[in-house]
Every structure is written in C-alpha cells, then in structure tokens.
C-alpha cells in the first residue's frame, strides 16, 4: 500500500541544510493501523507530509498503491490527495466561516461531484460521526471534539483508502480524545489504512503497531506495547 524506499528530505535554508529524514524505509500494508511516535523535530510531520503528498522527498522512491509518486506534478499530487488520502490535523484546520456541512463538502467541490451526490454523502458522514443536528453550525460554535469529528468526516468525504492523522487528540481532553479514537478504530475495522502521529502511548495503544522516529531515522519497528 505505502512503500518508502530510502526516502530522504533535506530542507535548505540559505547556506544551512537541515536533514529532516535520512534514508527511511517503511512499508505499510493495506488495512494496517500504524502509530508514529518520536520527540518533536524527529521528522514525524515531514514523514506524514510526504505520505500525504503535500511534500516531495529530496531522494528515494515512494510507491503509493504501486505508483511511483516522486515524479508527479503538483496538480497530479492534488488529485491523489483528493482521492486516496484523508487528512486529520491536530488543530482541525476547518474553514472557520463555513458550516460543518460546507466543511465536509469541501473535498467534493474539487472533482466535479454532482450536487445531489454531495448532499447525500455529507448527510451520511454527519450521521456517521453523530453530528447530524450540527450541520448548519460553524466550527466556532462547536466543542473541540465535535470539530475534530467534522474534520474526520471531511477526511472521509471522497472515501479514501488511507487516513493520515497528525496528533488528532493533541488539542482535546481525554474524554473527547477517546471518542475520536473509537471512531478511528471503527474506520480501521471497516478496512481503512490509518497512520497516526502521536506523543501519547495511551493513544498509540489503539493502533496495531508503532514505529519510532529519532533524528529523521526509524528507530524501532514493532508491535505496540
């Protein structure tokens, strides 16, 4: 499903070079639930950005469902982000002036889905995350947990096989965090591949396996404790 072969990422800031990832090999099979742990600055976010096709590696090969992503243009990567990957962010990243409904609809606006199909899909998703009565509310009128559920619904809008979650519970209290993790577990059992960055071992415990990053390299690849 996801295969990293010797992926490196180097940021150049003037004369200074910053190596975010050095020679990373990762393989994620379909239907796997993987947590990525590590201290800040260890390259977790860069790894996630590359997997999610927001960023491109400086070196190495990245195969997504068997396709080499490295040589694609920005717009081709946009299509991949739209169809194959759903992002869930720590700070939700919802459009503040748009309603829950409009936020969930957003990914579908970029590939010409018919209005009827969009409406049906949005109500399905609202139902699924238990927010049907909140369709017309804006993010500012919702709790953090509710906002994150809207974000998950948005990530699922195009029914992507892969969900990428970057500290999805980082801004939430433990109760809301658990609710969110239960949704992820459900999605995983439904057959989706989930990659999640987290600090919290209790949250990582929901996943099947964990990898640890340190200074841009994979330290350990094993079962979750």
């Amino acid at each position: 499903m996801i295969e990293f072969r010797n992926i490196s990422k180097v940021y150049k800031m003037g004369e200074v070079e910053f190596v975010a990832l050095k020679g990373v090999f990762i393989t994620v099979r379909q239907g796997e639930f993987l947590s990525i742990m590590g201290p800040s600055g260890s390259g977790k976010s860069t790894l996630m950005n590359i997997i999610g096709c927001l960023d491109t590696p400086t070196e190495g090969f990245y195969y997504l469902e068997g396709e080499n992503v490295a040589g694609l243009t920005f717009d081709q990567l946009s299509t991949i982000r739209n169809r194959k990957v759903g992002f869930v962010f720590q700070n939700f990243n919802l459009l503040p002036y748009a309603t829950a409904y409009e936020n969930i609809e957003l990914p579908m606006l970029f590939n010409g889905k018919k209005a009827g199909a969009r409406r049906q899909r949005v109500s399905e998703l609202l139902e699924m995350v238990g927010l049907s009565p909140w369709a017309r509310h804006r993010p500012t009128e919702m709790s953090g947990g509710q906002q994150q559920r809207v974000a998950i619904a948005r990530a699922l809008a195009m029914d992507p096989p892969i969900i990428l979650a970057d500290e999805p519970t980082g801004n939430l209290d433990s109760k809301s965090g658990h609710e969110i993790m239960e949704i992820f577990s459900r999605l995983w059992k439904g057959g989706r591949t989930i990659l999640m960055v987290t600090h919290d071992p209790a949250i990582a415990a929901f996943s099947q396996s964990t990898i640890r990053l340190l200074d841009g390299a994979v330290q350990q690849d094993g079962a979750a404790t």
Binding site: S78, T79, N82, F87, L106, F110, M158
Partner: peptide, 16 residues
C-alpha cells in the same frame, strides 16, 4: 492563506 492551505490539502488544484 490557511483557507488556501486547507483547500490544497483536500485536493484543490492550483488552477482552482
């Protein structure tokens, strides 16, 4: 800028 970032992340092309 954040709105633009979000839209690009969920699959908007530069043209859009």
């Amino acid at each position: 800028i954040r709105e633009i970032g979000i839209k690009l992340a969920v699959g908007a092309k530069r043209r859009a």
